[in-house]
Design a protein around this nucleic acid. Structure first.
Ligand SMILES: [Zn+2]
Ligand SMILES: [Zn+2]
Ligand SMILES: [Zn+2]
Ligand SMILES: [Zn+2]
Lengths: 150, 150
DNA sequence: GCCATACTGAGACTCAGTCGCATCACGCCC
DNA sequence: GGGCGTGATGCGACTGAGTCTCAGTATGGC
């Protein structure tokens, strides 16, 4: 039951209409603890009998991610998931157990990108960094790393 | 018409059989200039009348990526693509125009990962970094960056 | 309150990827 | 150089994500 206003504000600021389905979805998204999939929203919307069409859920996710307040992450499994987040450049650490994410800013990546550009001769326009592991809350539950950190 | 033996070697080393479809696919993959999708292979296999089933293509890609000689990359568009590559830890710079990729090793990312872990309290087990831009060959053709480098 | 128009829901559709199963053929052993 | 066990194949049906169309609805500027 977190605050959905950032999502609504973003929509309003972009000149998009604040319709009932969008309000409901903003709330639904704000309520998510970790990352969530479009299917999750469909299921919950049905569970809560919100009467929101599947297409609208996809369209709203598109709109919100276009505005940068929701971001798509590519799970190692190949699935797509979303997280609500701030519309500034950043990356995510994703907990493989509970799905909760933390935002991280540049964290020294700028240097890495510059070095890569220099070494490869590519002009790098865009980059994506995702980190997976266990959040502080889940750490005690799982003693061994899945893979050696690298 | 590049050399398909690295793929075949990897299969053999893993105790997998070198069947006709796998040989054909190894060649097909070796022939790819940039990244390719499962659908690309299906199409080319049909074009060359290789008679390879769709399922086999997916299964072979799974096997090869399990062995690390092929890697799945998540394009910004959300599509999945594959690239043949060395079975060591590395990342890719992907040309948004021609799809050609360059491998890059750690490139200072280790430090970034460590810093992120420290700042967030997460234990980071796995990470994925992908860079997108233009390769040296495509650079002259496209004067403006799609987005400000960040 | 009216109206242009952005948005919506329903449902059909496409396309990636999976699965089960009968058949095949690789490659080890002789 | 054959047999044979078993891993691999192809087919075709299936699932599930995401898209599209279109007629109808409701937002928000005026
Ligand atoms: Zn984000
Ligand atoms: Zn967790
Ligand atoms: Zn690779
Ligand atoms: Zn290029």
């Amino acid at each position: 039951m977190v605050d959905p206003t950032p999502f609504l504000d973003a929509l309003a600021r972009a000149g998009l209409r604040l319709t009932a389905p969008r309000r409901a979805l903003a709330q639904l998204i704000a309520d998510q603890a970790g990352h969530f999939s479009a299917a999750d929203l469909v299921a919950e919307s049905q569970a809560r009998s919100l009467g929101i069409g599947r297409a609208t859920i996809f369209r709203t996710l598109d709109a919100l991610s276009g505005l940068g307040v929701v971001e798509r992450i590519d799970l190692p499994s190949g699935e797509h998931a979303y997280v609500g987040c701030a519309p500034t450049h950043h990356h995510h650490v994703v907990c493989s157990r509970c799905g909760r994410t933390a935002q991280i800013d540049d964290a020294g990546l700028r240097t890495v990108v510059r070095e890569v550009a220099q070494r490869t001769g590519y002009r790098v326009d865009e980059h994506k960094l995702e980190l997976f592991g266990l959040c502080p809350a889940c750490l005690p539950a799982a003693p061994f790393p899945l893979q050696r950190p690298a």
